[in-house]
Design a binder for these strands. Structure first.
Lengths: 155, 155
DNA sequence: TATTGTTATACTCTATAACTATA
DNA sequence: TATAGTTATAGAGTATAACAATA
């Protein structure tokens, strides 16, 4: 029984620590988590309209305007006219943006190593499996609750 | 090698999901994570000055003023004059505040059960142990980095 | 008529600096 | 002189609503 809450307590502790670590790491590059999230999606999607970014980030279009404004003035992205739809804007990573996201991927791997580097392969695999399970449960829960809210608000 | 990044990836996924889940759960009570964090510390510390809250939350005194303003007008806390120091204010949980934090503790246990409830006791224990290790490493890393920054900024 | 992005407005969280009242 | 809390100001992230240009 107690081990169950211990799992959640540790996950919450890791949650807080990751937040601090990410915020501090990004601060060095003049980035925030929200802006980095946008860069991350942009890297995954390639040049993208702001509407599509809003959908990918699950955030209002107005919010994307603000995030892109900030990222454009700090040189991580550029806006360009959409080739066929003159209402739309295409947002792309600049060289600086690509470079920065590349570094971030490297740091990601390094952090992995620092966290579990000297555990035995078998232990790491078991841990990964346990986390798969927990993440899956949590995802199911969150989605069910969000669906429930939608239903409650709609019905 | 790949299992290492899998561990971090799952932790990051859980990080995002916990954020969504917490935000949604709190929204129902008219609370935010920042305000709930203050309530949580208040429950731990008992009636507390705003200075002490600022220190506990690692946040500016000005910020505490705003958080307490919000919590006071929604009825979760009250301000009272400090008995001996007329500069200071004592913040306390109201009955509503106590009740709400109690419910939150219950939900915490329920969530634990939902996440690992039907895993074997041995597996849960192993998972808890693995997370202990990872949380410890992460804590060490974050503290070292923050100390390094202080040194760099100071020296 | 619907969609894309922006301006207008507002709220929360966060910070620093200046000020008031007290120690 | 130092401390507790506030007002003043500012910036980031978030939202909705109204509006312009375009589809």
């Amino acid at each position: 029984m107690e081990d169950a809450t211990r799992v959640l307590d540790r996950l919450l502790e890791i949650h807080v620590l990751l937040q601090r670590d990410l915020a501090r790491a990004l601060e060095g590059n003049g980035l925030t988590t929200a802006r980095t999230h946008l860069l991350w999606e942009l890297r995954r999607l390639g040049p993208t309209t702001q509407q599509a970014l809003a959908a990918a980030l699950e955030v209002s279009p107005r919010n994307v305007t603000g995030l892109v404004d900030g990222l454009e003035s700090s040189g991580f992205v550029v806006r360009a006219p959409h080739p066929t739809d003159r209402r739309a804007t295409l947002v792309s990573l600049t060289e600086l943006g690509e470079l920065t996201m590349g570094e971030m991927a490297t740091q990601h791997v390094e952090l992995s190593q620092q966290l579990v580097g000297d555990m035995s392969q078998a232990d790491v695999r078991k841990l990964a499996k346990g986390l798969d399970t927990v993440a899956g449960r949590l995802r199911t829960l969150v989605e069910a609750e969000e669906a429930g809210i939608t239903t409650a608000a709609t019905g």
